[in-house]
Nucleic acid binder design. Sequence first.
DNA 1: AAACGGCGTTTGTGATCACAGACTGTGGCC
DNA 2: GGCCACAGTCTGTGATCACAAACGCCGTTT
Lengths: 221, 221
Amino acid sequence: MTPSPAPAQPTGADAQLPAHERVYRQLRNRILWGLLMPGAPLTLRGLGTELGVSMTPVREAVRRLAAEGALSVSASGRISAPELSDERLEELASIRALLEPELGARALPRAHLALIDRLDIMNHRVDEAIVKTDVPGYIRTNLEFHRTLYLRAQAPAMLALTESIWLQAGPTMRALYARRQRSEATANHRKILAALRAGDEPGLRLAIRADVTQGLRMLIG
Amino acid sequence: MTPSPAPAQPTGADAQLPAHERVYRQLRNRILWGLLMPGAPLTLRGLGTELGVSMTPVREAVRRLAAEGALSVSASGRISAPELSDERLEELASIRALLEPELGARALPRAHLALIDRLDIMNHRVDEAIVKTDVPGYIRTNLEFHRTLYLRAQAPAMLALTESIWLQAGPTMRALYARRQRSEATANHRKILAALRAGDEPGLRLAIRADVTQGLRMLIG
DNA sequence: AAACGGCGTTTGTGATCACAGACTGTGGCC
DNA sequence: GGCCACAGTCTGTGATCACAAACGCCGTTT
């Protein structure tokens, strides 16, 4: 039996988590992995029945995600996945170009070989998702790659900001990636890994910056 | 009759805003202006009766602020103003040092004289708050100065991230500023204004960076 | 005197309900 | 044919309530 994408009953380790937390994670993953189309409308009651809870915890989860920019609520309170203008996308890209090289540079002195090997393996997963043209899979594994590296930076606030940016761009990224498929992503990742192995901070900053900006910039132009 | 600091009945323009929005703004300002001590406990019912609403809108506002890092909730759900470690404070300072010079640089080409004059006036207000040793007033006017400049950058996402950092540091800043009072803040601000008038981007970046890092760094060491 | 145990109180959580506003689609009118 | 008005439905909002867990206080014990 295949696992249901949205279990009405809490299963496994999630059983003891508060309902609003489960709803939050569920929605967050959908957004982050590009499973929601930009502008797609959501309703409190709909999400509640779908996830097997009442409106109350759903409201809290939605409010939380809206605060992170992951969802947008209209003046009248309607909830939807955000639609980003090109200027906004460029801004998000330049924020990534600002924060992520810094996170990489901070992770560099703490990145031992075991970590680099794990990143290498993750990069293979990114590759697989690309050849299978599995867009959500590509987005997910790509972000996992970056996140695993940045975790070593020991900078939780900076990482939280960065993930907030990913979240904001999630739905739009998906919609854009559906049109053009990237393959130079793994090339950039290989450059990142090489700089990591060499302990080359300027090279690492450059490689991360290239990876981040190429991904978004070429989707606009 | 003096205006109550926390009106139980919505007054003026706020009357038509949703209750959760009013609660959010009320709490946000208290945090941002350093009116809450780090670790100070808050309760949903307490805030509700104080602000004249039920628990429901308070819960949404608190959840939203917690998502921005402005409040911390324990594993058991207790709400309090966050207590930041020194490492965390340093991290927040370096994030400010990363984002704010960029915001300033983007605002620079759009900063006409009227704006600079307004900033000058605001800087006088900062000065007044300092000589009166009005700590919340100093924090508030100082942030107003920065915010007014950054608004010209036309980078809403970057500004939102920056304000989130201010929010996170709010209570701790207050607790630290209560001990030592800064006076070179206005000197840095004057350097910012001079660079703005001269159209000197590198100088502006440097001045903002100095203003931001001096404020926090010297409170730690 | 310090640590432990127990109980009353306080606190967050989640469900339910009444209500007002917004949206949808349908019909009639110009 | 296109535009507008109206009604029905859907949606978010906020209050209230029952409940379980956590906290704090106080008396007892070692």
